[in-house]
Every structure is written in structure tokens, then in C-alpha cells.
Simulated scan of single mutants.
Amino acid sequence: MAKKSRNRASAQPEPLPLYDGKVVGPREPCPCGSGKRYKVCHGVAGATTFVKRPFEGLPGECDLVAMRELVPAATAPLTIKGHEDRTVLLASLLPVAAPAMSRDSGQVWAGLQVQHGFGDPSREVAAALLSALESAEAGESRIVGMLEAPGPGPRLQDIVADDTIDVTVHEGFDFWLADVEERDGLEEALQRANDAAMPTARLTGVEAAYWTNVGTKEHLRWVMPEPEDELLTALARLHASGADVIVPGARFVGMFRALGLLAPVWDLPVGTGAEALEEPATAFKAALDEALADTSDLTPEQRSARAGLANRQVTIR
């Protein structure tokens, strides 16, 4: 029995390097914050590294996180260095959850919601996108798959030339056929995909805030760029004073943790809609900025609120 135990221990994967130079062992907590051991979280599925905040430094980082984790159907055009004349589209989800596609039209598309996960989405999207661009330059159309980690190479931060990102939220996936003339045989599959898409809208007055209707409820999900500890403290100040109620009847229910950022979530009264959130969200952002700038000690009520909020976080792997 002891010999078998030693064999199992020796078979554990080696500690893997992170981008900040630290290492994490297989039995240590995964740095994504899931609460699981690394070996059963980001240490599986052939991952070769883990980047806690993979889109950091990219324009629209918060929107990219939302497109990958929260928004069913959205697109954003990209300008890729060395391919400035090529139409490149970044999408939340592509047909069959493809990592990338070179299209018959000559366009190149890349998807954020994919079935693989090797620890660095930025590197993975860049690898798929560059492969699709190579096919497009050769006049070929194909779907780019990714069955194993792409290995060393450029990340999105290295190849994207844009200073801003312009996100368009779609009611469904009709954009899949936007450059297709012959649609026979495709409409039924498209309808099935559209039926599964929850109505979603991006607020215009603040960054990366998305209203969605899930049928029985409406939500506001807002990806924020501030460091987690600072944001939790600021939200606790507002929560303790009741200043975190976006609209009457709304309730601040917790936060997602996704790709290194927090996304606070509010339950909304059914029938609220996105338009009614614009002014209240702008006012809330001003109050949040003021709370972020407050360096005074937390009151007992605020400390209690902060502890409660910390317990209402769900990590999206």
C-alpha cells in the first residue's frame, strides 16, 4: 500500500510557472480563486501555464471578459498588425464553438467562447486567429480547431493594433450568415441557436455593463477593472448605506469572478429593461468612484458588509 501511495505522489504533475514568475504546485489552491486544488482546476486538460488576468492591457478588457463569460451574441471588429486590410471579427461565440474561421468571403473570425482551456485565453485566441489569417492569405476557407495547447507565441496584446474596442450586441446569431449568400440548409440550425440566446443589451453610459433577461428574472451584470480588494471595500461602503440599489426593487446579489476581474450582479424587477438603467448606472458609477477614493477605515457595519460580499462571489472557470 505504501509503495502505491509513493507512486501516486511521484506521478503528480510538476509545479507550473505563472506569468508573474511564481509557481503553483498541484495540491495548492488554484490561483484563479475557485477554491479547488490546482491539479483539478487549471492544472488539467493539458494546461501549460495559467494567466490570472489574460486580457489585461488590451482595449476594452472588461468587455472582452463579458463577451467570453456572460454575453451570448456579440461581435467586435479588430485590426491586426500586418493584416490591416483584412476584415477580422472577434465574436462571443462562433458556429460549433469554433476557435477561429477563415470564411469564403475572405473575412477572418475568432471566437471567445470555446470548448478548450489551456490557461491563457489571450494566447489561445491569438494562435487560432493567426492560423485563420494564414489560411485567408492563401485563399483558403476553413475552421480552425485547437486540440492541444498552442505553445509559446504572440498573445492578443502583441497583435491587436486598435486603441478601442467597439462591441455590438446582437439579438441572436444572424451575424453568422452575414457574409453568406446561399443560406439553404442553414436557417434551421440558426433558429435553434437564436432560440437559446437570452436577450441582452450593453449600457451606453458606462463601460462593460450588460442587462439581460433570463425569462423569470432580469439582471444587470457589470464587469469592473478595479483590483478586487479595493472594489470589494468600495462596494461594501455603498452596500452598508443602501447606496447599491440601482433602481427601485433591484437587489445586489453578489459577484462573478472571471479572468481576474469582478462582475457585480443585480437582480432587477421584471420589466425593467436596459434603457431604464442608463441614468441610475451612471449615478452609481459616480458614487462608486467616490467610494474607491475613500481611504478612511471601515466602520463595523461596512466591515460586516464586506465580509458578506466576499462570501457572495462565484468564480467562473
Rank of each mutant, 00 (worst) to 15 (best):
L238V: 11
D174M: 10
W266C: 05
M255Y: 06
T87A: 13
S241M: 12
A11F: 06
L231D: 01
E181I: 12
A258T: 07
A149V: 08
V253E: 13
P300E: 05
M146Q: 10
R183C: 08
S34L: 05
K3S: 14
A240R: 04
D244H: 07
K36E: 13
E207D: 15
A178S: 15
L64H: 00
C30H: 03
A250S: 14
S122C: 05
K36A: 12
L235Q: 01
L186T: 05
L261T: 08
R183G: 07
D163T: 12
F173W: 09
F55T: 03
E84P: 04
P95W: 05
A283E: 15
L89K: 02
G111T: 10
F118A: 02
D162G: 05
V88R: 00
W266F: 08
V214Q: 15
L94F: 10
N213R: 08
S5K: 13
D267P: 04
E187L: 15
E124M: 06
M101A: 12
A149Q: 00
L292R: 09
T315L: 07
V125S: 01
E228N: 11
T168V: 12
L70V: 09
A138M: 12
T200R: 02
T299Q: 02
V253I: 14
A127D: 08
A276S: 13
W176Q: 01
P150C: 11
G273P: 06
A110G: 09
H83C: 15
W266T: 06
E14I: 09
G33S: 08
E218Y: 06
S122I: 04
E275P: 02
V88D: 01
A286Q: 11
V125A: 02
L309E: 00
R8S: 14
L64N: 00
R251D: 15
A149P: 05
A274Y: 01
S131W: 00
V96N: 15
E124Q: 07
S122L: 05
E84D: 13
E278W: 07
T282I: 10
D63Y: 05
F50E: 00
R192Q: 10
T168E: 13
E69L: 12
A310D: 05
E181M: 13
A100P: 04
A189C: 07
R312G: 02
C32H: 01
E279V: 14
I80A: 03
E188K: 11
D162H: 04
P152S: 06
A98S: 14
E187P: 01
P300A: 03
M146E: 03
C62L: 10
I165T: 10
C62A: 15
D120M: 04
P31M: 07
A201L: 14
N213L: 10
K217F: 11
K81L: 12
Q302I: 08
K217I: 14
K22E: 14
A91P: 00
D174V: 09
G151E: 05
A127Q: 03
P150M: 13
A136G: 10
T282V: 13
V167R: 00
G119I: 03
L220K: 02
D20Q: 08
D229N: 10
D158G: 05
V44W: 08
